[in-house]
Design a protein around this nucleic acid. Structure first.
Lengths: 205, 205
DNA sequence: TCGCATATTGACTGTTCGTCAATAGTGATA
DNA sequence: TATCACTATTGACGAACAGTCAATATGCGA
């Protein structure tokens, strides 16, 4: 057996990439750790050395995808808030289009009620809420590292909108609808959110 | 060992109920078939006799919950479409409130990209689209047994709204927000959908 | 009460997750 | 360039697991 020794960061990155590919195509329980290791040209022991358990590997993979998504869908304030959101939606759809299978896996999961993987999805959603909310309020678009839920009316309204964005994105990749149509429906659904935000920020007459 | 022999329907129903309880609390890979059987006061062999595999049991459980949901959230046309939807939303929230854990498991899954369980969630969503769409178009509220996607603009708009409904429902059970607030946000988000539907149905001037 | 169809069992097998002491690359040092 | 030490990597192992099947017992109809 000819070994190849890598730096831990490189090896970890390589295995996470492998996880993205494999978990895109196969459900969790249909993959064996032996197969994963073989497919990665690596021993099974190494897989456990890096991720501790099969589930640990899955969680790390999902987390990696979530990070990639949040890096890719960064808000870049332009003129009006609407134009900025429009731009971000395009980036979002770009990402979903390029990583359709694993995005689906991230969002719609498959087997079981697992708090860990649910927390990852929630982190993505609330980060988006913080970013868009920040854009509309102060213009600060960075958002916190570990995004907490915002249970104000405005925060929840944005969170609901994120639900629409996700649903329509998945309809796009699953049903082969025109991207243009999906984009316009997403933006259309943002209009009332924006209107409500402006209304609530104004002093009552 | 004292056996108890039941009719297949009864036994199946009992085991599905057991599945709902167990999969609400534990992720798929944290449950063993031995434990499931013990918990049900039944042999492991019987579990496999009824459901073929562990995944088969999980899928059947999820499907059971989906059926229950669709039975419970039936549209009951009253005066105006809006009043009918309002009533249905209340039923929906009732169901989610009573079956919070397994609803979360149904929707947000956990592990892996499994076409089967995804198809179940999609069936629920598109059935709701058909029912509400039928209400707004013809008043026929029954919907097909196996709901297919509707890729028209109106169908997708409704589908996006369902995404909001789901997101806000989960925010409700996860974050302990006031139900009243969630309900009002869901209805608020329905208004533009209803408006767009009316607009598109009217002849252009 | 008896007999039969079949719901139910539990011991079995092959597979899979996870462990750990042994091994061999790789970069640093002289 | 040869040697060393550090640690990334391995493969054989054990325990636990999903899934099978011939044998068994239970309730229903006659």
């Amino acid at each position: 057996m000819t070994r190849k020794r890598l730096a831990t960061d490189e090896r970890r990155a390589q295995l996470l990439q492998l996880g993205v590919e494999l978990f895109s195509r196969h459900p969790f329980d249909a993959l064996t750790t032996d197969l994963i290791a073989t497919e990665g040209g690596v021993s099974k022991g190494l897989l456990f050395h890096y991720f501790g358990s099969k589930r640990g590997f899955y969680i790390a993979t999902i987390e990696h995808v979530a990070d990639q998504l949040l890096i890719h869908v960064v808000l870049d304030p332009e003129r009006a808030p609407l134009a900025t959101v429009l731009d971000a939606v395009e980036r979002f759809l770009d990402f979903v289009g390029e990583h359709a299978a694993i995005y689906r896996a991230l969002l719609r999961g498959g087997l079981g009620a697992d708090p860990q993987s649910q927390a990852i999805v929630e982190r993505v959603r609330w980060t988006i809420v913080h970013r868009v909310g920040g854009l509309l309020s102060t213009g600060d678009v960075s958002g916190p590292v570990n995004a907490e839920p915002v249970t104000t009316q405005g925060g929840l309204r944005l969170y609901g909108w994120v639900g629409t964005v996700e649903a329509l994105s998945l309809a796009w990749i699953d049903l082969g609808v025109e991207r243009e149509l999906i984009r316009s429906l997403i933006l259309e659904s943002f209009a009332p959110v924006l209107a409500a935000w402006s209304r609530d920020r104004q002093p009552r007459p």
